[in-house]
Design a protein around this nucleic acid. Structure first.
Length: 434
RNA sequence: CGGGGAGUGGCGCAGCCCGGUAGCGCAUCUGCUUUGGGAGCAGAGGGUCGCAGGUUCGAAUCCUGUCUCCCCGACCA
């Protein structure tokens, strides 16, 4: 993508409304634009990152055996009356009438809807187990939206729902999602701490939250220091034994921790830090299958309410968490897995014909090689270009200028760490294509 | 919802107390000079000061109401 054709409104001064570093950087780097409290437009660069995060989440869901679908954002109130949550949910749910006066709502979650859909199609235990998911916009009219997209009112969420015949099946489905979550966060370059959670309004008896450790997190956590020692490789290869090990280690939110009479973790191993909740999984059993009237016929001919679970990941919130975890004084440092472009190609002298044509040619070859490249072909000073590239945090910067071309080299710089080296065009391209 | 703060060109701010018809920096546009880490000079465009009402000869400045946004707390991906 040529920067002279792109829409990248970077800002030098930090907008006054932003408090935390990820929010400031998202605004400065032209990723998002606020529309109302807790409601944001995703600008082209931010949208690319969002799609990358979404892709990784999707791949891991698919790998875990979940099946993707898409449910609507708008739901009828009657659906929620069946489960009893229409009244229970409170003002956080955005409600409004349609033109006929029918009561509608903008979905804050989809347990009722998926159960309803399932009910219409599944009658036999032979169709179990199933896990369905979608990645869809949610709206929760938060009392206090804040920190940019971290606590938005409208946000993108991956929510999955599992249906099993019995509790053992539910546990297996829950474990499969647990593993998928560990892998997902690890792939995103994040270290997530699973925390035993109280089950709250969704109900049920088994639940874990996944927190990214960050000073700007909204939750206060207490946990065993051993949780920090889990390696990324181990998480990427997570399996049932990983879950057993992790859930065996103490981790609680402050409120729950306060209720624990004597904490099993020795004082020198007990850590207290803040966390950003990026995922939450629940096994809630038959709560919705009963209230919504979903049952299947078992092998012995009896009718059984399926055991259900639901599993959420805050896809848009993850972007904030990633930036909180990966930035420096100059700007964002994207993990390659989610970077909006892999390479920032800088033409040092757009007014210099031979330099420009050399850069143009390199751009063409990067495109042919399938390397996502943002080509700064603007007629700007080098400093401004470097500052922009550092701010938007692409993993690589490839610098093409007259001085290098005289020596037959271009400069390749890594954003994280800042190492740079001079290479021939051929070897630079080979490096980037790899 | 309770407590605090703020709304003035695209962004960041000053002016408001002591009413007199809007200013600074950045950004933008033009020209010239520059060009390997956010350039310099000269010039230009862009706001009627969140909105409504009131006081006054006169309101960004005073009064009343209202809307919006941000921060702290109780809730959540």
């Amino acid at each position: 993508m040529r920067l002279t054709r792109y829409f990248l409104p970077v800002v030098r001064e930090t907008p006054a409304d932003a408090q935390i570093v990820s929010h400031k950087l998202m605004l400065r780097a032209g990723l998002i634009r606020q529309t109302a409290a807790g409601i944001y437009a995703w600008l082209p660069l931010g949208h690319r990152v969002l799609r990358n995060i979404e892709r990784i989440v999707r791949e891991e869901q698919d790998k875990a055996g979940a099946v993707e679908m898409l449910m609507p954002t708008i739901q009828p109130a009657d659906l929620w009356r069946q489960s009893g949550r229409y009244d229970a949910y409170g003002p956080e749910m955005l409600r409004f009438p349609d033109r006929k006066g029918s009561e509608m709502l903008y979905g804050p979650t989809n347990e009722e809807m998926i159960t309803q859909i399932f009910l219409g199609s599944v009658k036999s235990y032979r169709d179990l187990p199933r896990t369905l998911y979608h990645i869809q916009w949610k709206f929760r009219d938060e009392v206090r939206p804040r920190f940019g997209i971290m606590r938005g009112r409208e946000f993108l969420m991956k929510d999955a729902y599992s249906f099993d015949l019995d509790e053992a099946g539910l546990k297996a489905s829950y474990a499969a999602m647990f593993v998928a979550y560990l892998r997902t966060f690890a792939r995103l370059g994040l270290q997530a701490v699973p925390v035993r959670a109280p089950t709250g309004p969704i109900g049920g008896d088994l639940s874990h939250e996944f927190h990214i450790l960050a000073d700007t997190g909204e939750s206060a956590l207490f946990y065993d220091a051993a949780l920090e020692d889990v390696s990324r490789d181990e998480l990427l290869a997570a399996d049932a034994s990983t879950i057993a090990r992790l859930t065996g280690l103490y981790a609680m939110e402050e409120e729950e921790h306060a209720k624990v009479a004597d904490c099993p973790v020795p004082a020198d191993r007990l850590r207290s830090r803040r966390g950003i909740e990026v995922g939450h999984i629940f096994a809630f059993g038959t709560k919705y299958s009963e209230s919504m009237g979903l049952s299947v016929q078992a092998a012995d001919g009896s009718q059984v309410h399926p055991q259900m679970g639901s599993y959420g990941i805050g896809v848009s919130r993850l972007m904030g968490a990633i930036i909180e975890a990966s930035h420096d004084d100059q700007g964002i440092v994207w993990p390659a897995a989610v970077a909006p472009f892999q390479v920032g190609l800088i033409n040092m002298r757009a007014d210099d014909g031979s330099c420009a044509s050399a850069a143009d040619e390199i751009y063409g070859r990067l495109r042919e090689a399938g390397v996502a490249t943002l080509y700064d072909d603007r007629d700007e000073r080098g400093g401004a270009k470097f500052a922009t590239m550092d701010l938007i945090g692409l993993p690589w910067q490839l610098i093409v200028g007259p001085k290098g071309l005289e020596k037959g080299v271009v400069e390749l710089k890594r954003r994280a760490g800042g190492e740079r080296e001079e290479l021939s065009v051929e070897s630079a391209l080979a490096r980037l294509a790899a």
